[in-house]
Design a protein around this nucleic acid. Structure first.
Length: 242
DNA sequence: GCGACAG
DNA sequence: ATCTTGTCGC
């Protein structure tokens, strides 16, 4: 089980830490996003997500590696690092990406596609965390978000698989789609990413949705990052102790 | 100036 | 994201 350390350690170059410089950096990186379908036959897919411990002082990134055909868990990793900056809408990647890259580097293999929590190009400057991750790693990525950050869309049917385009409010440019992954659940906001087209992204998401709202890679990474298991177990015990 | 605002 | 119990609906 050899881990791979082929991911950048300092994804922000010579960033001075200021929000203004971060936004400028996003503008230039956004130009490097590839919105064409350019991914290999999928054999291994990954899911990444981030959670926090100790009131937010520790950033906890989880990465899971799945067999793209059977969805069998092939490997997983966890990276715990000190939190370096606060959450600022639009600058999420500068807060979470370092931990995510560390977790990815500890997986047993490099995935053919990564599902990232948060948006891809459905972002004010077209560089949400999924797109940022795709540019710095060069790998295909898709952003799977639970809430809207920017853009507008029409209503969509309540049936599983229903979807409508998400467009820039000002330019009308299509920046992603709103997808109902299960009957009557709150829709997901899907956007590339890198090396995946706006049309293909939701298809790939649906391919990996089983019985839950979130596609498996994202759901499993979320469980690890946010310690769903541990918390549920702790709750059951304290409740039984009474 | 006012509202919106991933995780 | 995280803190948190019971509860309404499919």
């Amino acid at each position: 089980m050899s881990e791979n350390s082929q991911y950048p350690t300092a994804p922000f170059g010579d960033w001075d830490g200021s929000p203004a410089a971060a936004r400028a950096m996003q503008q230039s990186l956004a130009a490097q996003v590839n919105l064409q379908d350019d991914f290999p036959p999928l054999r291994l897919i990954a899911g990444v997500d981030v959670g926090f411990e100790d009131g937010g002082t520790i950033t906890r990134a989880a990465a899971v590696l799945l067999d793209a055909d059977t969805l069998e868990l092939v490997g997983s990793s966890l990276a715990r690092v000190p939190t370096n900056m606060p959450y600022i809408p639009g600058l999420l990647s500068f807060r979470e990406l370092p931990a995510v890259l560390q977790a990815l580097g500890e997986l047993p293999a490099v995935p053919d596609l990564i599902f990232s929590d948060g948006h891809g190009i459905a972002h004010p400057r077209r560089l949400g965390i999924a797109a940022h991750l795709g540019v710095v790693t060069g790998l295909p990525t898709i952003g799977v978000a639970k809430k809207l950050l920017t853009g507008a869309h029409d209503e969509l049917d309540l049936a599983r698989g229903a979807q409508v385009e998400l467009r820039d409010k000002k330019t009308g440019e299509v920046i992603g789609c709103v997808l109902r992954s299960k009957d009557k659940v709150r829709p997901l906001i899907i956007s590339p990413g890198n090396r995946v087209s706006i049309v293909t992204a939701p298809q790939l998401v649906m391919r990996y949705v089983t019985r839950y709202r979130l596609p498996e890679p994202t759901r499993l990474a979320d469980r690890l990052a946010s310690r769903r298991e541990e918390k549920a177990a702790a709750r059951r015990l304290s409740g039984a102790a009474k």
